[in-house]
Design a protein around this nucleic acid. Structure first.
Lengths: 124, 124
DNA sequence: CGTCTATGTTGACATACGTCGAACTAAACG
DNA sequence: CGTTTAGTTCGACGTATGTCAACATAGACG
């Protein structure tokens, strides 16, 4: 099978910490950091993807079957396309169990993005 | 607890404050919420914009002249174009003072996006 | 086996996007 | 005035993106 290309910023040892970059307000990002972080923001920069991601993330256990979240107003292939994008961005992972395919959030990535947006400006 | 501030998921007010939506992990976003939030994520979904925004956000006072942040590897019209996009997304505001134009971050928007990505405290 | 259901993939299309150079506006300065 | 510096807007170009219908694949089930 063709392995999905996942963001290289996430090592299994980095779970729980910010793997990508310092907060946006700390210092100007380098080109490389921006390249990496932009990929994550871009993945959430589409309404359909955002709804899909939110549906998965808010589902119990942070995991949901495709059949439970595909009611977002677009065709089924489009849903599959967007889920693939989210997977390629490292935000979701998928697993087939019998008939259905389950998608799950990558909590470390969510935490990384949250840290990017932490307002350190309050210290000033 | 102090959820009195997070409760209003009203329309994105035009006052600069953008408490658009609850955390992504709280419940599936509505189409309207996703539209609003995706616009912000999309604005940060470009490496150049991310660097520009980070440069402004990390500058003293959360404010910077265009001339101080335009060294991002693209032409000056492109810088202007991206700054306009960030402004349209509500992430930055601009003001002309004499010869130079200063851009400043909208801290409320930054906080709103941070809240969107608040770590999955409930997704256990 | 055949068939049904659940997802993924492919190909095509229209639109959006990032980029640049050139032309334009705005302020300072002589 | 004219010139210089700072920044925006315009027009054009190539590429990326979102979308769908059609087809393909993977289990389940008889």
């Amino acid at each position: 099978m063709s392995n999905a290309k996942v963001l290289p910023l996430l090592e299994p040892a980095d779970q729980g910490v910010a793997p990508c970059c310092p907060p946006l307000t700390e210092r100007p990002m380098t080109a490389e950091e921006a390249e990496t972080a932009a990929r994550m923001f871009k993945a959430l920069g589409d309404p359909v993807r955002l709804r899909l991601f939110s549906s998965v993330a808010s589902h119990e256990g942070g995991e949901a079957c495709v059949c439970d979240i595909s009611d977002v107003g677009v065709s089924q292939p489009t849903v599959s396309h967007h889920l693939k994008k989210l997977k390629e961005a490292g935000l979701l992972s998928s697993e087939r169990r019998g008939t259905w395919v389950y998608y799950r959030v990558e909590p470390s990535v969510l935490a990384a993005m949250g840290k990017l947006l932490t307002t350190t400006a309050a210290a000033a």
